[in-house]
Design a protein around this nucleic acid. Sequence first.
DNA 1: CGGACTGGGTTGCTTGACGCAACTCAGTGT
DNA 2: ACACTGAGTTGCGTCAAGCAACCCAGTCCG
Lengths: 162, 162
Amino acid sequence: MLRNDYPGQICSIARSLEVVGERWSLLIVRDVMNGNRRFDELQKGLGIARNVLAARLQRLVEEDILERRAYQQNPERYEYFLTEKGLDLWPALIALLAWGDRYSPNPDGPPMLIVHKECGGPVSDRGICERCGKLLHARDARAIPGPGLPAEPDLAVAASDR
Amino acid sequence: MLRNDYPGQICSIARSLEVVGERWSLLIVRDVMNGNRRFDELQKGLGIARNVLAARLQRLVEEDILERRAYQQNPERYEYFLTEKGLDLWPALIALLAWGDRYSPNPDGPPMLIVHKECGGPVSDRGICERCGKLLHARDARAIPGPGLPAEPDLAVAASDR
DNA sequence: CGGACTGGGTTGCTTGACGCAACTCAGTGT
DNA sequence: ACACTGAGTTGCGTCAAGCAACCCAGTCCG
């Protein structure tokens, strides 16, 4: 685990990064947002080491970004859900997604598209629906596979059933 | 330097984080955006180790996020400026700033405020001016010290002359 | 003229986070 | 009886980060 302070920093960006600036943290949040809620799903999807994933999940739960709920007993099995605090990271993720699409573009187009659930319109880098103009929040949007998504069967399945 | 790939990831968020997800990178970009352009300024302001700062600056220049320009000869001294690509990280920084202000608030209020240069209005988490409603970009806004800024003289000076 | 200071780094050493593989443990399926 | 699943934990080695010291060219101070 990273030392979680940027000594002497008084800025809120620094405080945000203490929590979500660690390697993998934002990717875990993104995956959970896309419906990957279980340990093994996350581990396989991200290719992260299991001990590191366990540490990150624990930290994100402590920070009240994720919530751990048992979905069965005997044996106990858990799922991770986003809290409001976690969902509110959506604008930051959208901004990073848009930046990545603009400056490290896939030749075939973006691998993932964010669309407004209500009207199906594309979502801008500020989280605004480009069709209907509404200012969106995490629950108003959905990720769908884009034209740049590799056609590997397992990946395609994994992406479409989310 | 972190290994700069998230193996197997095809998502643009992951590609963004390969570049700016490293510890310190976004804080360096923020500082440069606020007018801290020189090595020693950055090193003192951030409290980062000098070798790490040198490595980060080099990486950010390679990635075309910063540009290194000599501002004098004999001896050569350099300043770092943001490129368009670097300036376009502004929405992500604003989103993280707003998230930090909301969820790890200073008792006295935010230490830094972002305002629209043109009309002086506060800027929302999406980078929209709350007074005039315009969608802003990096150059349209300015950081000013907020009520939560500690009153240490040197910090106040450093913040006000940016 | 000698010494300290400034700006922009580089070098060497140590610590600690990350990646990998193996193991655990309870229950389930064949 | 054996393998498999889900959710981790443990041990080990490596590589990146942090710290302090050093370098170098030029400038300022007495």
